[in-house]
């Protein structure tokens, strides 16, 4: 464990908590893409199948349980508990265009052609594009609530910090996972536009509004 990975995990955890609290407290999932949250639930499910068979550390296991539980809770709130506030008309990204290519790619490019490894690879590829429905929805509505932009910022920063974690691990641990690194780069690049808007607008107290 290094500081970049730890800060990355904390940032990821806080993004998940921010979203849970936003929906629960405001009893509304307005402006939130249910499709992205569904994709994240798939990402965690396919990545943590070894949750019970492969103990790495208490930290690792407990974080995995929290990620899986909170992603399902978020999906449940959007599609069940507060579905009346779900803005389906603006959440129209075709997720099959994300799931099918990443699934095919995980069969073609992976470290080991075994079910668990292919599912892990699929989850890595899917995670790198899972935020697209959410970013697409923000661009369609032309704006995002400030709390939603904090959620997106924390979520974007987590994988950016992981990029530094991989540099660190390459330098000091001879650790190198090209699949995770390339997917992490794609994931971070997708946030660049949002990062720019967040830093130039939200941090100056303005509302995040995209040129529609």
């Amino acid at each position: 464990m290094n500081i970049f990975r730890f800060l990355g995990d904390i940032s990821h955890l806080s993004a998940i908590i921010i979203l849970l609290l936003k929906i629960w407290k405001s009893r509304s999932c307005a402006g939130i893409s249910g499709k992205s949250q569904l994709l994240f639930a798939i990402v965690f499910t396919t990545r943590y199948l070894d949750l019970f068979t492969n103990f790495i550390s208490f930290y690792n296991t407990s974080m995995k349980v929290v990620y899986v539980a909170s992603s399902y809770a978020t999906v449940w709130m959007i599609y069940s508990k507060f579905k009346a506030t779900y803005d389906g008309n603006h959440d129209t990204f075709r997720v099959e265009f994300l799931i099918v290519p990443t699934a095919i790619l995980s069969f073609l490019v992976n470290h080991d052609f075994t079910p668990l490894e292919i599912l892990w690879t699929f989850s890595i590829y899917l995670e790198s594009v899972a935020i697209l429905p959410q970013l697409f929805m923000v661009s369609k509505t032309g704006e995002a609530e400030t709390i939603t932009s904090h959620y997106l910022f924390a979520l974007g920063i987590y994988r950016t910090l992981y990029l530094f974690n991989w540099i660190w691990r390459y330098q000091f641990e001879e650790f190198f996972d090209l699949i995770a690194i390339v997917a992490g780069l794609v994931q971070t690049v997708l946030y660049c536009d949002f990062f720019y808007l967040y830093i130039t607008k939200v941090l100056k107290g303005k509302k995040l509004s995209l040129p529609a």
Binding site: I56, D112, Y162, F176, D177
Partner: peptide
Amino acid sequence: EVLSEDHDEL
């Protein structure tokens, strides 16, 4: 080189 099989990152 590539990490050990058990992916130790979240």
